[in-house]
């Protein structure tokens, strides 16, 4: 595997790993039983993708459990805390739309990611549909749900620009991806009676973001929890 493909497998694998972990935090806390099932199902799909991708780059457990925070290459979007159900769904809407479009492109190409993308594109189609339906329900539901959904969509907007930063080794048409994403998200938010957020889509900090290994404050704490047991028993098999 080339160095570029290695970097790419880490970036895509870390996105899936980290979002899966965040969704796993919902277990036992979801607003309705059907969503316990749905969120766990999405988390499992993502974990499956992460395992395939990380295994392309090395040993899946070493990569997940023994890397330091700065070595993770996931988007800052996926590491954002769950917040309320609206925040989780806004994060789902932004990410699953991106992931579905990206895997759609990769599935038709001939890169090392084509076989995975060919399967994952079906999973992410469901994730995207789930997020779009909930965005409409919450946006066009009650006054309170509208207010919460708008707040969530706006709060996470600043993390969406990073998704379209080209990743070395991922043979995608990034401009096309960004155009399709904007069009789709605009359509969903509008049909949900929500305003498309107006703020900038990336932070003002020039040092970079998740793809460069720069993360947000809550991520270290998430990793501490995720890695603690594995690291407490060096070399043990589970």
């Amino acid at each position: 595997m080339t160095a570029a493909a290695h970097t790419a497998a880490l970036a895509l694998g870390d996105d899936a790993l980290v979002l899966s972990h965040r969704l796993g935090e919902w277990a036992g806390h979801a607003p309705v039983l059907e969503e316990e099932v749905a969120l766990a199902n999405i988390a499992l799909d993502l974990l499956g993708q992460a395992r395939v991708l990380l295994s392309m780059a090395g040993d899946e457990d070493e990569l997940a459990y023994l890397r330091e925070e700065r070595a993770f290459r996931n988007l800052q979007l996926v590491e954002q805390p769950n917040g309320d159900f609206a925040h989780t769904l806004a994060r789902q809407l932004y990410f699953s739309t991106y992931q579905h479009l990206l895997y759609g492109q990769l599935a038709t190409g001939d890169s090392v990611f084509a076989p995975l993308a060919g399967k994952a594109v079906h999973e992410t189609a469901y994730h995207r549909d789930h997020a779009e339906q909930w965005t409409r329900r919450l946006g066009d539901g009650t006054e309170e749900s509208h207010r919460r959904m708008q707040r969530a969509a706006t709060a996470l907007w600043q993390f969406t620009g990073e998704m379209f930063q080209p990743v070395e080794g991922v043979p995608a048409d990034w401009q096309q991806l960004e155009r399709s994403w904007q069009q789709s998200v605009t359509e969903v938010l509008t049909s949900a009676t929500l305003e498309v957020p107006e703020g900038p889509r990336t932070g003002a900090w020039k040092a970079g973001a998740g793809r460069q290994g720069l993360h947000t404050e809550s991520f270290g704490r998430m990793l501490a929890e995720m890695q603690h047991l594995h690291r407490s028993h060096p070399g043990a098999r589970w």
Binding site: G24, L47, R51, M226
Partner: peptide, 29 residues
């Protein structure tokens, strides 16, 4: 059991545990 999803010591065990907790929600349904 969900108490240990975020601390599962390997990705394989994490997947198994998540699937199990999901099954329980399904049984409830």
């Amino acid at each position: 059991e969900a108490n240990w999803i975020t601390r599962a010591p390997s990705l394989r065990r994490k997947a198994i545990l998540m699937a199990k907790v999901q099954d329980e929600a399904g049984h409830g349904l």
